[in-house]
Design a protein around this nucleic acid. Sequence first.
DNA 1: CTGAAAGCGCTAACAA
DNA 2: TTGTTAGCGCTTTCAG
Lengths: 336, 336
Amino acid sequence: MAITIRDVARRAQVSVATVSRALTTPDLVRAETRSRVLAAATELGYRPNRAARGLITGRTGNIGIVVPDLGDPVFTAVLKAAQARAAQADYAVFVAGGDEDPATEVKLVHAMAKQVDGVLVCAPASTDEQVAEAAGATSLVLLDRDLPGVPAALLDGAGGAEQVVDHLVALGHRRVAVLDGPRASWSNRQRRRGLAAARARHGVDLVDLGPFAPSYEGGTRAADLALAGDVTAIVAYDDIMASGVLARLRDRGVPVPGEMSVTGFGDLPYAELCSPPLTTVAVPLAAAGRTAVAMLLAGFDAQDADVPRVVLPTRLVVRSTTAPPPGPVRPRRDQP
Amino acid sequence: MAITIRDVARRAQVSVATVSRALTTPDLVRAETRSRVLAAATELGYRPNRAARGLITGRTGNIGIVVPDLGDPVFTAVLKAAQARAAQADYAVFVAGGDEDPATEVKLVHAMAKQVDGVLVCAPASTDEQVAEAAGATSLVLLDRDLPGVPAALLDGAGGAEQVVDHLVALGHRRVAVLDGPRASWSNRQRRRGLAAARARHGVDLVDLGPFAPSYEGGTRAADLALAGDVTAIVAYDDIMASGVLARLRDRGVPVPGEMSVTGFGDLPYAELCSPPLTTVAVPLAAAGRTAVAMLLAGFDAQDADVPRVVLPTRLVVRSTTAPPPGPVRPRRDQP
DNA sequence: CTGAAAGCGCTAACAA
DNA sequence: TTGTTAGCGCTTTCAG
């Protein structure tokens, strides 16, 4: 068996209670005793059993993270930042990835509930009811999903979408294709909201296409449809779809951005590596992960009943896939 | 407080011991009693506290995974598969990412040790001594790192490297640049071993360049050096470096594969998306993750003293970045 | 087949 | 300032 608090007590010639105190509430023990205990602990290589501690304190020192897909770079970016932030506070993190079933996410939360102090749930596809119910099982923070009463770290997808359209309009585009992604997600709804706002504001023609799979293949398929749509720009659902679009356009001999502008969403590492480098919306995934974890941790202590809800700003990154539309640039006429 | 075994016992009109048995060793309780208990448990939504159980059984039902970098798609691929495999066996997984310090990995193992039944350590950069010492703290399985006495799931990097050279030689290349990556890693040593073997076998000229950072920028830098080296092919350390090479060659107007062949290593998703699609070595990351977890789990039960060590095969995937060298193909002369 | 009781490693009153 | 004791939620002898 591993070494326990009792071994340390024996070696330091004190009771287990004193060892416990020396470790958790050092001020409550005489300096000399404390150092003796600490010395004994180090010599023995003692590491408290957090599970046992949790049993009595009700605090496990663990948090959980549930993501829709551990293979998706969007979520691993969040995970990385979240894990780092948690480690900073000496919290360990459980991770679980749902796969097919949207209800899985909720199950995962329940499965973790007893072993963690709280769970960060990323972009759950579950229904509001399911999420609310899961929130009953443990302390919850949502990421990229909004639900009244549950703390959330949100990404301003609407703002990002607006910036994209603003940019395209500024370049002179008047008719652009919008490639839709999976309909269900909250973030997609946000993005569409931003698109709608921009459309209203500028009076641009936004040609809705899709939905397409958020994949390279989805992008290649979408490109052909967009090409048939008499547009001068394509707003893809995300970077990966955009890369498919780019590839297909190249195959079909359509110069980008000369004949066609293309934008992505996410600014994943490879957006920069596309050729040409992709104009896209940078989404602060790492910041979101950090923030969400910070909210979770803060929620453990603070008992104020307010439900924090922070929206992280997105930012358009202009690279080389956007340019004025071909032909003579028609002067823009804004709505009166 | 959450609902405990006692609540279930009360509701089912039995003792807590019976509830425990009904849940863990169903055969030991009368069918009728069992169903009564199970019903009560379901009605109450009871979920046993695994930490408390672990305290007494010595089994936590958790495993840990330590990776060098949670942002690296190589490791998240492993993580995804490992997590899935663990979930299958109803194990939850802790995840931690080391960052700078190689010794961090060992610390992470120790930090997890008490909360898990075993840890999967991916490609640790620590010294043999450090790893061996960590293996003392808990049940360990290594991935992509070999150490006598510790079970390991290995990737056949040497074989992959040999396949690359075989392929290039078969195409007629006689002088190829090899871009080195971080020297320290075990997997890099393996790859170099494969290269050396192939060189000895074929008598090809292998021009060692580097080391370079395993990044896009590293690749662009490397490309220029390779170009100056009078070679007809470039073997990059990994896919990402290869994509940098590709980009730089395009910028410099060198047709691939017409004037220069390029290979990667890893077959990450975007290898296929490169333009042209990258010839590379497929590494069974998911299989490795699954296997490693399976080994870990198996090790918990079996008490045979043998130390499993499985080597997963890699496989060359020929796409469009390799072709015969330019100019008249000189007939190959193998060594006598 | 079932219950009573001990105890896993630890913390939190309560005394001393 | 320190030790004694109870007990967190659970499993596991040991009786019955």
